[in-house]
Amino acid sequence: MNVLYININGLYGIREKDREKLRNCVDDEYCSKNAESICDRILDSQNIEKSLKYDIVFFSEFAPNTSAEKQMTDYFDRMGYKLILPNAYDSLEDVKGKYSIVVAYVRKDLHITKSKPSPQRWLTWCEISVNDQTIVGIHNARDPFLFDVKEEMKAWKETKEKLIILGDTNVTQQSEIKQIKLMNGIISIVGSEIFDADKKNTYREVTKPDRVFSNTDIDFFVMDGFFKDKLSDHDALSVTIK
């Protein structure tokens, strides 16, 4: 199974996103152009990038109910994917007015209907269970989120389930010591951090907040070019679950 994750910055590319517009379900014209380019990059390149076909694609800093989001969802639908919202929500109306959530597009033949509710019902946690394993796309915007993740992981460890967590943690080697210690605590509970062979930086090619943790056997590489081509301020995480 192949999984991709990318922080898409509200589809504003490398520009500062307009949060007020996104709260009101409005975006700018170039957001639609970025949406189309990102979809093409992920789906049309599937047989180019290490012959991967992605079963699940996670997007963070996703702005629902905008014209660019509708365009993206239509594109994925035509390619055989359905949109999975966080917290087992059924409708985009449930997240109206939110402008930075984590969602997943999942192949329809996987028969995933809903994500599970997250710790404290964070919208930056999108959890999917498939083939006796749990895959979670995350985006940490605040320290309380990391505390909740750590508590959730303590309970998870007792289940001995296969677990993959991937996403923008907002924690790097340049972060505050307390954040680094908290993240290291989460990693030790989950299993280990998985590194790409080239150890590429994922945020503006400067730091690496986008990370992968797992207690099962996976391969991982950074699919770069999204930042270079001004499609996002992040590059993507590509994971193959063995």
Score class of each variant (00 low, 15 high):
S60Y: 01
E61C: 02
F62R: 03
A63C: 12
N65A: 05
S67C: 04
S67T: 09
S67R: 10
K70T: 09
Q71A: 10
Q71S: 11
M72C: 05
T73Y: 14
Y75Q: 02
Y75S: 00
F76I: 03
R78Q: 07
M79T: 04
M79N: 14
G80C: 12
G80Y: 02
K82V: 06
K82P: 01
I84A: 01
I84D: 00
L85T: 03
N87D: 10
A88T: 09
Y89P: 03
D90C: 09
L92R: 04
E93N: 10
D94Q: 14
V95F: 04
K96G: 12
K96I: 08
G97M: 01
Y99Q: 12
S100K: 06
I101R: 05
V103K: 07
V106Q: 02
V106F: 01
K108Q: 06
K108S: 08
K108F: 03
T113S: 13
K114Q: 10
K114D: 03
K114E: 08
S115Y: 07
K116M: 15
S118H: 04
S118W: 04
Q120E: 15
R121N: 14
W122F: 10
L123G: 03
T124S: 12
T124F: 01
W125N: 01
C126K: 06
E127W: 04
E127F: 04
I128V: 08
S129M: 06
S129C: 06
S129Q: 12
N131W: 06
D132Y: 02
I135D: 01
G137W: 00
I138Y: 06
I138R: 02
A141K: 11
R142C: 13
D143P: 10
P144Y: 10
F145L: 09
L146T: 08
L146K: 11
F147A: 08
D148G: 05
V149H: 00
K150D: 05
K150V: 06
K150P: 07
E151F: 08
E151T: 13
E152Q: 14
K154C: 13
K154T: 11
A155T: 13
A155V: 14
A155C: 12
W156E: 12
W156V: 12
E158T: 11
E158Y: 11
T159V: 09
E161A: 15
E161K: 15
K162I: 00
I165D: 05
L166R: 00
T169I: 00
T169P: 03
V171S: 07
T172N: 08
T172Y: 01
T172F: 05
Q173H: 11
Q173K: 14
Q173T: 15
L182C: 07
M183R: 08
M183I: 10
G185S: 13
I186V: 09
I186W: 01
S188M: 01
I189D: 08
I189K: 07
V190Q: 09
G191A: 06
S192W: 09
I194F: 15
D196M: 04
A197P: 15
